[in-house]
Design a protein around this nucleic acid. Structure first.
Lengths: 235, 235
DNA sequence: CCTCATTTGTACGTATGTATC
DNA sequence: TGATACATACGTACAAATGAG
């Protein structure tokens, strides 16, 4: 097991501190020199970590001033990299498990091709409904290969981000991915879960997510009723 | 006028070479050392340029091997950064101008707040329809402030990317932006242009695009009928 | 208005690790 | 095994923006 590079460790530590409130929105981060000393690194290394934070939208950099922690992105962000839990802000989101993680054979992966290794490992499948202020917003179907993930199916993922769970439990980090977007009509199933009328337009998002673990991908399908909240993202 | 930093100059040069075919898809770029020598820079500087290219999706990096030019220069799929022209692949896309660039007062900018400077400069407004293989795919409404853009309204933008036009003519580069997504029903106007039936689900994308020119933003609204083509993007 | 300390941005150089062939 | 190429990390210097005095 190779340790992750120092700039990444610093990035992850700072990100955790931000999301857990050690630095609050609008507040200035310590200067690069201060961070370098605190983490026993040099300024270029700290800068790389801060660049990552900035590109992920956690901070805003400005020459001559300290970096400022960004306020939680308004609306519902999902197009960048965060999962659906952080997409709506941790606050008043409830996650309802429709189908607990179960092991099954792969059938298809939302039209994404899957490797033989993933095919052979079997598929962990689960469905969640995200509820914001009493209104259902996302229906979230997730599939991932059962590769070296001990005890995964024992956990319910209730009110918890899949990504932070994978990070904490298995040291798997999300690095990027590809996605496809469609506008579709709500079918019976979506009518039921998203509480919309027949034929109502719903946004469908298919995502293939890359991770730091080679050959391990997360396949995710999200349905979203955008009448109340639009999806937002930065690029 | 301050010269742009060297890593950015190298980035832009390489990007131009890629998009204009000097390097073709699948081909390997020169090594970092070779590029450094060729541009009279050092490796860290060249690396920064290559990192930009990679994050824009023009190349794929792999340790131990040269960087490889990507097939579909996706840096600007519609969800990441480019305009709609490159989003569908330059090939057989036709652009039909519904409304030529005209100067008008700002009314609103797709729910994005605009600055006083933009408000005062007036608004260049135009509408385009993108047609792929005979089928209308995008309806594209663009607004941008009339700030230091001589002769802009004289150009029709027929079959031409707005972004590459701004780059070539005014040296304005796109640096990023924010966007909102909705699934909506087609109204009369969308039925007409996108050739869909009443109430058909259509994808609506509102974007505020940042540029290298301070305080200058492009506001863009895209409607897309996704029954034939889904929008794709990388993150 | 100017000066100065602080902070971030750019660019250099160097060394070492690790993946590929 | 060695050569090549990319990844990480160190150190240094100066430029440019900011804000305080």
């Amino acid at each position: 097991m190779v340790a992750s590079p120092k700039y990444r460790q610093i990035y992850e530590l700072l990100r955790t501190q931000i999301t857990e409130g050690a630095y609050s929105a609008g507040e200035a981060m310590p200067s690069e020199n201060a961070l370098a000393e605190a983490h026993r690194a040099t300024r270029p290394t700290v800068r790389k970590a801060l660049d990552l934070l900035a590109s992920d939208g956690f901070i805003v950099k400005h020459q001559g001033k300290e970096s400022v922690v960004k306020s939680a992105p308004k609306g519902i962000g999902i197009l960048s990299i965060t999962g659906t839990t952080s997409a709506v802000g941790q606050g008043n989101v409830l996650t309802h498990i429709i189908l607990k993680p179960t092991l099954r054979q792969w059938t298809e992966a939302f039209s994404f091709p899957i490797s033989e290794a993933e095919q052979g490992a079997g598929c962990i499948y689960f469905e969640r409904l995200r509820v914001l202020e009493g209104r259902p917003v996302f229906l979230d179907i997730t599939m991932l290969p059962n590769m070296n993930l001990p005890h995964f199916t024992l956990h319910s993922l209730e009110n918890r981000s899949l990504f932070s769970f994978l990070r904490a439990k298995y040291r798997i980090e999300v690095t990027g991915g590809t996605q496809q977007l469609f506008a579709i009509r709500a079918d019976k199933r979506l009518q039921k879960y998203l509480q919309v009328k027949a034929g109502f337009p719903v946004l469908q998002l298919n995502r293939k997510i890359e991770t730091t673990r080679q050959g391990f991908h997360i396949y995710s399908q999200v349905f979203c009723a955008t009448q109340a909240y639009g999806l937002t993202g930065a690029f």
